[in-house]
Amino acid sequence: MASFDTSRTHLNPTGIAGRIGAVFTTAIGGAATWNDARLTRNALSKLTDRELDDIGLSRADINNIK
């Protein structure tokens, strides 16, 4: 799974280039988060009902993973 490092100091971007960079960074972060949730849902969908019960989930819970 991918991880996103949020412990770095954030510098305030200046000017239009900084704003465009911030939008790009936000979009990439959102796409990475969405993809991680998608991969998790796909992996959980492949488990049997018994295996899902062992980890405290039901088949209906899979779509609520975000």
Rank of each mutant, 00 (worst) to 15 (best):
M1A: 12
M1K: 09
M1Q: 09
M1G: 12
M1I: 08
A2G: 04
S3D: 09
S3G: 11
S3I: 03
F4I: 14
F4S: 07
F4R: 05
D5N: 14
D5S: 09
T6I: 05
T6C: 02
T6V: 03
S7T: 15
S7Q: 12
S7C: 06
R8Q: 15
R8M: 14
T9G: 06
T9Q: 12
T9K: 13
H10Y: 12
L11M: 13
L11Y: 15
N12H: 12
N12K: 15
N12Y: 13
P13N: 13
P13W: 15
P13R: 15
T14V: 10
T14F: 13
G15P: 00
G15E: 12
G15T: 11
G15C: 10
G15M: 12
I16E: 15
I16Q: 14
A17W: 11
A17G: 08
A17V: 13
G18A: 11
R19E: 06
R19P: 00
I20S: 05
I20M: 06
A22K: 01
A22T: 07
V23F: 03
V23W: 06
F24M: 11
F24T: 13
T25L: 05
T25C: 00
T25P: 00
T26Q: 08
T26M: 04
T26K: 04
T26R: 05
T26L: 02
T26W: 05
T26A: 03
T26Y: 04
A27H: 01
A27L: 00
I28P: 01
I28N: 02
I28Y: 00
G29V: 04
G29T: 06
A31D: 04
A31M: 10
T33E: 04
T33D: 06
T33L: 09
T33Q: 05
W34F: 08
W34R: 01
W34P: 01
N35M: 06
N35Q: 10
D36N: 11
D36G: 11
A37R: 13
A37H: 12
R38Q: 15
R38L: 14
L39E: 15
L39C: 09
L39G: 07
L39K: 06
T40N: 03
T40Y: 00
R41H: 01
R41V: 01
R41N: 01
N42C: 06
N42K: 14
A43G: 05
A43V: 13
S45G: 14
L47W: 03
T48Q: 07
T48P: 01
T48L: 07
T48M: 07
D49S: 09
D49C: 04
R50V: 02
R50W: 03
E51N: 06
E51L: 03
L52M: 06
L52P: 00
D53C: 05
D53M: 11
D54P: 01
I55C: 05
I55D: 06
I55S: 05
L57V: 03
S58V: 02
S58K: 06
R59W: 05
R59M: 10
A60Y: 00
A60K: 03
A60E: 07
D61F: 04
I62S: 12
I62T: 08
N63F: 10
N63Y: 11
N64I: 07
N64C: 10
I65F: 15
K66Q: 11
K66R: 12
